[in-house]
Design a protein around this nucleic acid. Structure first.
Lengths: 228, 228
DNA sequence: GATCGAATGACAGGTGCCCGTCAATCGTTG
DNA sequence: CAACGATTGACGGGCACCTGTCATTCGATC
């Protein structure tokens, strides 16, 4: 789950945010001062920061600037101030969002989700490696052990994708047929045999003795990388 | 400069934003309804959208959903409503920020800058070199091996940009069509064939045997610089 | 152990789709 | 009005997919 750093000098706010965020599965760091916040940020690399502007010691805007020196972490600013100039200063310093106290917990949580969603375009490294080939789901590509590309046709790739995304799990024939060819084809088991053979010819070192794409007779197919 | 799309049914708001934004050097599109806004977004690909929630016809939240179907453009929501549930709905639909009317122009401009800054590709070393040409994504320039500039038309450049930014990854036909021409063109595969041919004529040493812009039949295209 | 049926695997021929290419037309801009 | 880029349509070639048939394997039954 995501890690949230809360920087606020008011104990009741820290407490309320700590309870609510942890209840929703976030990991939460609490800091009372700007200095403490910067230190925790450096140590724990939170995914999002909730920052009060009116801090004792160094000001909230300075905290933002301190963060921006080395991090792109989204910052949501809290403030009792209504003054427009404060908002402008905070946003220009690099804040991502601005919430005026008193605020509703639902709104803050929604803004938190929005900030995390923006920051997380990070195409999870969807790569599966085996001793004989490597599958990159994001790039839609397969390379063999020597690094040479293995070309798959659209249908072949689609089958491989479904099986790999369900890695280790059995995928039923009907399910596979529906996902690759559409709901009207759920009885065309011939297709599966033809294309599974093709996939094995291209990926299995011994197509006759599959090491990765296994048949479960009468049920379906399973992709699995054997443990060493 | 950046292009801003403003969607609001109140003439005085449209007028005020139009004047203020243009005075600061933004290119501005003005739309009165959600439908018009979606159409303009598809045609002009703005860098940021300012959207009123209380629209006649289709609702602001639906406009956000319509946009999010194909675009990651930041959306700043305007609303007279104070209700927290509205904010939550808009933010969860994919809005990036929320401003309550009446708002100060300075605050809106600051949030606009913040949204654009977030979306900015962070000015990283956006240069791709190959033995035959060099692409500078930031400067929007291509030069050949001898240092001479290669001129690309806007559409050609847009295609190259999308493919290069996804370097190594396969870009689906629909995705490419949507990002370059807009969501209404996702079936016009002719465009791709014509413009890919044009791009290859200008960049590939042997347009008939591509070394950089590869076709994945039935799926899409991929830009890649071969390892030495 | 022999027989049978069900399910999978293998193979090859035909056909339709997709890509690359060319060319004509339209719309915009200077 | 000239020049350029974008939009279409048409066409040919290659290949991916579909299809039917036959071989093989496995388990059940007698």
């Amino acid at each position: 789950m995501s890690r949230v750093l809360v920087v606020d000098d008011e104990p009741q706010i820290r407490r309320a945010l700590g309870i609510n965020l942890r209840a929703r599965g976030y990991d939460v760091d609490l800091a009372e001062t700007g200095e403490e916040g910067l230190e925790l940020a450096a140590r724990h690399h939170p995914d999002v920061v909730v920052l009060d502007l009116g801090l004792p010691g160094i000001d909230g805007v300075e905290v933002i600037q301190g963060l921006r020196g080395w991090s792109q972490v989204p910052v949501i600013v809290l403030s009792v101030r209504e003054a427009e100039s404060d908002k402008v200063a905070a946003l220009d310093a690099g804040a991502d969002d601005f919430v005026t106290k008193p605020f509703g917990m639902d709104e803050l949580l929604a803004r938190l989700r929005a900030a995390l969603r923006r920051a997380a375009p990070s195409e999870e490294e969807a790569v599966v490696e085996t001793p004989d080939f490597t599958i990159d789901l994001a790039a839609k590509r397969v390379v063999d052990a020597a690094g040479a590309e293995i070309r798959l046709t659209p249908t072949e790739w689609h089958i491989v994708e479904v099986l790999v995304r369900n890695g280790g799990k059995l995928v039923g024939q009907k399910q596979l047929l529906q996902e690759v060819w559409g709901p009207a084809y759920e009885t065309e088991t011939n297709y599966l045999r033809v294309f599974m053979a093709q996939v094995r010819r291209k990926l299995e070192p011994e197509p006759g003795r599959p090491r990765y794409f296994f048949t479960e007779p009468g049920m379906g197919y399973r992709f699995e990388v054997a443990e060493p």
